[in-house]
Design a protein around this nucleic acid. Sequence first.
DNA 1: ATCCAGGAACTGT
DNA 2: ACAGTTCATGGA
Length: 322
Amino acid sequence: MKNTLIKDNEYETMSTTDTEIEWIDKRNYVVIKPPKEFDFRECMVYLGRSDIECLHRIKGEELYKVIKIDDQMILLKVTSDNKEISISFLNKTPDKPIKTQVVRYVWDMFDLGTNLSEFYSAMKGDSILERLTEKYFGLRVIKINDLFEALSWAVIGQQINLKFAYTLKKRLVEGYGEGLKYKGEEYWLFPKPQVIADLDVSELKELQFTTRKAEYIISLAKYMTNGELTMEKLEDLKSYEAIHKRLLALRGVGNWTADYVIMKCFNLDKAFPISDVGLHNALKNILELSEKPSIDEIEKMAEKWRGWESYATFYLWRSLYD
DNA sequence: ATCCAGGAACTGT
DNA sequence: ACAGTTCATGGA
């Protein structure tokens, strides 16, 4: 992580694996320069899809979220006019090394390193996606930087309606996560696997988790705390296929969960939760079908999406919130 | 009341 | 390999 200070009030750059992040340190806030294919409002529509989401708060066009870096709870307010993304530090102004990590966090959360123009040109001529890429121009896959959170959230969402899924997540977060109070409101972090690993199934059943969901999440937490399952180990596998196979070996993780997690935690845009009911409903609506399309039919439609299945899925999900 | 929900494991063939 | 069954509870 090298930072080159150029001049006061000019962008300094931070290199990532594939791009450079341009940003400015303004003391109690920082400014990031996003790529031109970025629309903050479109991303906020997705972020605002549940009114009981507990891991961030939306007020008007402002996103509030607490994150933890180097053992410090940092409450962020994120806003953007699409030319700049501004990140304000509300509860404390961190030092420079922490700020660089916050910049990376927000950069990754909005998947700003992906070249969306490539996606858009690949979708030209596609009967479904071309229209969506125009309609939702600048929408980016909202990532989850915590593998355990992504896995747990996917397990929670298995075979139950989304509203109840959010209720379960809220109970888990407020029961076992760390919170920060600021101006009368609470902000939460997703629980650490170390905490969940020591729970008994009965403790999660009290929150109305089913026995299976409780078993899955506790065993995933154990794998993560004993080091069998880490982000680093998965990244070392490199390919989508290898990571997918590794995730499938975990109890409670099937095809849908593996693809969902890869989509939310990795920069592998071919992850494709093809069995997803939301995806099916989006296609049914857009194509004005009387029944949801079959997997075979979706595979046929998705031939043109090859390499961009995650983004195609995400744009279809977005269409559910119009 | 009935059906389904951002599925996955288990069982039997 | 593949299809059918079970899990389990809330929401519309």
